Computed example of a mutant assay.
Amino acid sequence: MYDVVLLTLGAGRDAPSACGDGCCGGGGAGGAKPAEECADTPRVPVLACADVLTAAGARVTTVTARADAEIDEVLARLDGPPRPDGLTWPDSDGKTRLVVATASDGQLRAVVRRLVRRYAPPPSRRPADLAGNRTLPDLPPIGVLPLDPRGGVGSATDLAGQLGLPRDPAEVAWAVLGGPVRRLDLLRNDGGSVTLDGALIGGADDTGTPRTWQGRVEVDDAVLSDGDEPLLACVVGNGNGYAEVEGLPLLTGADPADGVVEVAVVLPVVARTWRRRKMRLEVRRGRGRAASINPRADRVPYLDDGVSGDLTRKRSWWIEPGAWAVYDRAPAS
């Protein structure tokens, strides 16, 4: 039987507080514990999943990680035997399985990012058994346990919802124990991070009005913007989380397992008639193996798998076909 690690990311890891589900409420008449007394208490979906796994004979460990080093300690359990070349490599036939309890796509991304940093060999030590279209080996599959198994707001567009993965803790447990492994593409970037779903570049001012910015946007050899035009937004998509923005369809066929990245830019175009000037939005799209954005402004806001930041220099993404994987729904018995 398997050893299963149920990993939850604590506060400060793109996550809300670990409190909730009857655990924390600041103390008081409701009987809920103060946050400091239950920071290490697993959430109810985690406990429910652990119960099903234990009943099925798995050896279960629950871990709450609040730092990269603590995530790395968990991931080390997925290492394979030593290699002659000295590289750290995942165990392709291991008996340890990982479940990540996620309150957001950004939390799942944080774990996959650490997997990439653990197993991607430096270019100077690229092994002969690595596929020619990849910079890292097949990463170990992950069981995804949404911390709101009912879905909640936005459930149709989070990554688990997009992929049709189980949300009920019992179904997640059975997927980890007996479900098929579904391999998915991964976007790496030259900033050292990864993207599972997509990135939305562009933002709005304090009144909510979209702010234009300029930047050169390329997909393989195609130029979507030369850097001289005002842009409202740019989407780099591996999935469909940013397929539509403010009701405007941007991505038309993003598929997280087709080996290509889809990119779209939105720019305002002024059409002049003999009576008046009218503004319309133009969308340009491209698909390929790699994409780059070179902003002209000092800072352009963006969201990457739901995590906010500022784009301050050229950023390039490239696709890693089938690099990461999830446990899918177990077949009906």
Results as ranks from 00 to 15, higher is better:
A18D: 03
L165P: 15
L248R: 13
D221R: 09
D51T: 01
V144A: 14
D93F: 10
R118D: 03
L136D: 02
D228Q: 11
D158L: 06
G10P: 07
A110M: 05
G247E: 15
D168S: 14
T54G: 02
A323I: 13
A56E: 06
A156N: 11
R126E: 15
G143T: 00
L224V: 06
C49K: 04
G192Q: 13
A11L: 11
G22L: 02
D51R: 07
D310P: 01
D21E: 03
G25Y: 08
R125G: 10
V99T: 09
P230M: 00
V236C: 11
V63Y: 09
R272S: 06
P230N: 01
T8C: 05
D91S: 05
G57H: 04
A175P: 13
K278C: 04
V153H: 05
D258C: 12
L232N: 08
A291N: 10
W213V: 05
D304A: 14
V5E: 11
G143Q: 00
I293N: 07
D79G: 04
D105H: 03
Y327D: 00
A101R: 10
K278V: 07
G247Y: 15
P149V: 00
G27M: 13
P268W: 00
G309A: 09
E244L: 10
S193L: 12
A50M: 08
M279Q: 05
V261K: 14
T96Y: 11
W174V: 09
I293D: 06
V326D: 12
G80W: 02
R284S: 11
L78I: 07
V153L: 06
P210L: 10
T157D: 02
L281E: 06
R113Y: 10
R109C: 13
A297G: 03
R285G: 11
G154D: 02
P295S: 03
T212F: 01
G30E: 12
A18K: 02
V112F: 12
G12I: 09
D328S: 15
A128K: 07
T54L: 00
W317R: 15
R134G: 15
V112E: 13
A332W: 01
R59M: 00
P146M: 03
D129V: 08
A323R: 13
A330L: 06
G247T: 15
A199Y: 09
G80Q: 08
P321S: 06
V111F: 09
D255P: 07
A160M: 03
